[in-house]
Amino acid sequence: MGKLFAIVLVIIALASAYPIVTHMYVMPEDVSTHGHQIDEQLSDTMAEAGISFLLAQFVLAIFVWKFAERKDGGKLKNFPGGAKIMVAGAFILVGTEILALGVFGQRAWANVYFTPPRPDALQIQAQAGQFAFYFRYPGADGKFGAIYPDKIDEGNQNYFGLDPANDIESRDDIVSAELVIPVNREIHLLMHAKDVGHSFYVRELRIQQDFVPGLDLSVHFTATKIGRYEIVCTQLCGLGHYNMKAYLNVMAQDDFEKWVKQKASEL
């Protein structure tokens, strides 16, 4: 029975590793400028974790194979070196791993969070509400009009609660249900939650950030490839959570300008 355990365990370990080694399941191709660092970090970690996983499972299998239900009646013995070598080994192996992962991992993180957006980054405001995203562009004046929560009126498509009658800055604000951005230009996304917590997750952009009501958060990123990508809300936000999606539309600069012009003319 011990040998069966060893065999089953080895099969499980190999079968578990197979889809990873053959890259059967990988994240869609990265289209951001910072994402490659995350991807590298992920594959480094995968290598280290994978080796630890296989090694531990194999050692377990071998020891159970060898030492289960021994018929030889031989004397029991202890692992040479005993507990000390285990403790030392754990400290050295995991310690270096932690240092390596910890230190290198911080670079990717720092790149996302500690570099301020460039001053010429395109500012777009994202509002998450149950159960849709809306995006607002400041328009020709480059300024966002103020938000008045009591003025929110979805029936009249006033999703943000703008007050164009009294607030000049909000008159030229463009509101869109799709996040349309120019390619290769940094975007500074200002995040605003209308009701409860939501999240902004674009796999291809390697960006995930929660919307927290009452907190002004932002992310910045540059998309490098034209295309249409899915934005999903990853924070459980209520009944319609399963339906809360939007699209990120990355366009060439010309197309983007055309789109803005067309949107502005609809106002």
């Binding site: 289960a68 239900e69 202890n78 285990m86």
Partner: peptide, 19 residues
């Protein structure tokens, strides 16, 4: 956590494990 795992694994060495 690794120390514990290694201790468990290392202790199996040379044992006579009842299944």
């Amino acid at each position: 956590a690794t120390i514990m795992t290694l201790i468990w694994l290392g202790s199996l060495y040379g044992a006579n494990i009842r299944i």
